[in-house]
Each structure stands twice: as C-alpha cells, then as structure tokens.
C-alpha cells in the first residue's frame, strides 16, 4: 500500500496532520465526531483507521474506525468517527468543543481486500466497530456485490443506525443481546443462518475478538473467505512500538507475531491464532 521512494520517504500511505473537530454529537451510547483531517479522506480505504492524540500528557494514541467520508461545505471531505468512551483519553476527546485542533494520523493499517468478482458478501459488525463496515458496503455495492449486513450490539443504544445501509445492502439483520431491537441474541446465534441465506462467498467482520473468532469459524465451516478487522489496544498505532502483536499462521504454516496496527488491522480469519489471542487479550 505504501509506495516508497529511494530516499525512504513514502509518497502515499498515512499522513500526520493537524486537523480540527468540526462537530460532535451523542447518538445513543456513542459519540459521532466529524473531523477535518486534510488529505486523509482522499487516501482512506475501508478497513483503515485514524489515530488521534488526546493531550500531551497521554502518550498513547487513540484509534478510531472511520464510519463515513462525507463532504462538508467549505471543508472538503471530512471523516465521521464513532467513539465509545473507554477511559480518560476518549472522555477528553468527546468533551472537546468544535474547533479544537487535533493531531490526527491516518489512514493507518491495511484495508479490506475487495473481491474481483461480484460475489455475495456478508458483513458482520458489532457495537461501534460496525462503523468500519458501512463504507465497505458502499464500495462493494459499486462493484455490484450483493451485500448482506448483520449488525449486532448489546442494546439499542449501542447499535449503529442501519437506516442508510438499507440502501446499499440487500438484506439487513439486527441482533441485540437484550432484544431491545431486532432479534434477541448474539452474532453466534445467527451467523450460520445469515451465511446460508446470503450464500456469501466472502465474509467481513468488525467487533470484539470473541465475535470475530465466531465469525471466522462459521465462515470456514461453509468454505467462505473471511476478513476480520481486529482491534487491539494500541500505543503508537503506526507500527513503531511493536506493542500490539497478534499471533498469525504464515504461508508455511508456522506461527509468527505481527502488529495489529501496521500488518493489520484486517486479517484473514483463518490466519489468526484465535486461541492464543482470546487468552492474552485483556479488556
């Protein structure tokens, strides 16, 4: 993805820019932020993400999926991010007034691979991470891939709106753990049926590790390819620190550690060593 010149300076790939918080509003259990980040929207591909600094005393960056790229008058393309507050960094961010200048780096990581043929695709997203799948659904529709969307959340407040997605997706299934909207249950309860009904040959997933594991196993059971957007606690988000390692199985069948931020966040579901990851990841 990153083209490098002989001098070692890349000509594409991520940018580190001073952006601006344009607007923020709370929708249900999430905050939706619109940010100006010059040059980043133009380079964005579904599956990549941005990292934002949350004050100079907090050294680690906070990473966010890109929900939408949309033009805003006078600002060109802007990014819409979905933020779930987790701690002091995200709480700082959602408390900032419009106009706050932000150090933003992106787009980071490897994007989802798109099928070359117009094959049926199932997109499975849980919680705020489902944000990563909405721009993907649009790209797939441009390629005339029939898209089925399965969106899950603990409750209605943490469910991303599927209103717009209903234009791009052939079918939309909604699952909440408490049954407040859609089917009551988990992704694991409905993914096999969704695979069967959609006849998907490619499955894309974004959400908690356990959900991604479930989807990867279900996809493999029916012979579908799966690509998962894996979220790990990040420090630099740029590949520098080797803090966010994920065990994967390489071409030769041997296990190795790669970085979730720079070598991911999108991985083939059948390549991730899930058991090692499930054990080691702390919330």
């Amino acid at each position: 993805m990153t083209a490098s010149t002989e001098t070692g300076r890349s000509t594409a790939g991520p940018l580190h820019v001073t952006g601006e918080l344009l607007a923020g509003r709370r929708i249900g259990g999430h905050h939706h932020l619109t940010v100006v980040a010059p040059g980043i929207p133009e380079r964005f591909r579904p599956g990549t993400f941005v990292a934002i600094s949350t004050g100079s005393e907090r050294l680690a960056r906070r990473a966010f999926w890109i929900h939408r790229v949309k033009p805003v008058g006078g600002f060109g393309a802007t990014l819409e991010l979905v933020v779930e507050t987790r701690g002091p960094g995200t709480e700082w961010l959602v408390a900032q007034p419009p106009g706050t200048r932000l150090a933003i780096t992106g787009p980071l990581g490897r994007a989802f691979s798109l099928p070359k043929e117009p094959v049926a695709c199932l997109l499975v997203g849980e919680g705020y991470a489902a944000a990563a799948l909405f721009p993907l659904a649009e790209r797939l529709r441009e390629r005339t891939c029939p898209v089925t969307l399965l969106v899950a959340a603990p409750d209605e407040a943490h469910l991303l709106s599927t209103l717009e997605a209903r234009r791009t997706a052939r079918a939309v299934t909604v699952v909440t753990h408490d049954g407040s909207v859609g089917t009551r249950g988990t992704v694991g309860d409905v993914v096999a049926e969704a695979l069967e009904r959609s006849r998907a040959e490619v499955v894309y997933a974004a959400g908690p590790v356990a959900t991604l594991h479930t989807v990867a196993v279900a996809a493999e059971a029916v012979g579908a390819w799966s690509q998962v957007a894996l979220e790990q606690p990040l420090t630099c988000a740029t590949g520098l620190c080797h803090g966010c390692v994920v065990p994967v199985t390489g071409e030769g069948g041997h296990e190795r550690l790669v970085r979730a931020c720079a070598d991911g966040p999108v991985f083939r579901g059948d390549r991730v060593v899930w058991d090692a990851l499930d054990q080691t990841v702390t919330p």
Partner: peptide, 17 residues
C-alpha cells in the same frame, strides 16, 4: 532504539536521510 519500528513505518512521516 526500539521506537522507529523497522524504519519503513517511520519513513511514511519523515525522510530518514
């Protein structure tokens, strides 16, 4: 040491030369 990744990652932001 240990803060520049493999170098390739950092080169996206700074000409190492």
């Amino acid at each position: 040491a240990g803060c520049g990744g493999t170098g390739r990652d950092l080169a996206a932001y700074t000409d190492l030369a």
